[in-house]
């Protein structure tokens, strides 16, 4: 554990290369891994694989939501050196299903007023903040979940099929919002079953097979 850490540091301090935005080494949990990957600033990595391959397990392990082994660092800072709540604000994971813990939509936002421009960009009714959660459609829940997550201004976004419940208009709204964030330097790992979506916004495609990452064949989208 200590030897690679020392080597990493010397690499960075020599100025040979800045540390990658996200560095995952030897990450494992149950049948998953060990998995290693890097993500640069402004890079979008699409992740696909059959259901049950462990895509969500991998994303949960990166944000430390399940006990796991391995090293994860953000811009050279190791995960264990950061309190978990702060880590999850900087490396945000958006699960496929958004969770709600009080009856009103508004109470799920720390600063509801700050959400307005995002709601607009996502094609959501600005009044939806005052609604009860029970009134939301599946697609509205999914987009509000994304808005809530983006308001933390994460440096890395781990998205688990973020447009699965959306029509094509709203899907392109989400995609252009993500592309805008990529331009501003965040990194994204996107789990998607939509090869065309991967083609539209991802720089690289990897596949999770049998708990290991394999580079996807570019000739087969």
């Amino acid at each position: 554990m200590t030897i690679p850490a020392a080597r990493d540091t010397s690499e960075y301090t020599n100025g040979a290369a800045p540390p990658p935005l996200l560095l995952v080494e030897g990450l494992g949990h149950g049948h998953l891994g060990p998995v290693g990957l890097t993500l640069a600033q402004g890079e979008c990595l699409a992740l696909h694989g059959p259901s049950g391959a462990g895509k969500s397990v991998l994303l949960r392990a990166i944000v430390d939501l399940d006990p796991n082994q391995g090293r994860v660092s953000l811009a050279g800072t190791h995960r264990d050196a950061t309190p978990a709540p702060e880590w999850r604000r900087r490396v945000a994971y958006l699960p496929a299903e958004a969770g709600w813990w009080t009856p009103l939509v508004r109470d799920h936002f720390t600063d509801p007023a700050a959400a307005t421009p995002l709601l607009d960009a996502l094609g959501l009714n600005p009044d939806s903040l005052a609604w009860p959660v029970a009134r939301l459609s599946t697609g509205e829940r999914q987009r509000l979940g994304l808005a809530r997550c983006l308001l933390n201004n994460p440096e890395v976004l781990l998205l688990d099929e973020p447009t699965s419940a959306l029509d094509s208009d709203n899907t392109s709204r989400v995609e252009s919002l993500l592309q805008d964030r990529l331009v501003h330097g965040i990194g994204i790992i996107l789990v998607t079953h939509d090869a065309l979506q991967a083609k539209r916004i991802a720089n690289r495609v990897v596949e999770l097979r049998g708990g290991r990452l394999v580079t996807a064949d570019p000739s087969q989208p």
């Binding site: 978990a84 999850r88 699960p95 969770g99 709600w100 813990w101 809530r148 933390n152």
Partner: peptide, 12 residues
């Protein structure tokens, strides 16, 4: 899901 949603947004 509701508890983890809060943890994921940075709640302790």
């Amino acid at each position: 899901i509701a508890i983890e949603a809060q943890l994921l947004l940075g709640a302790d």
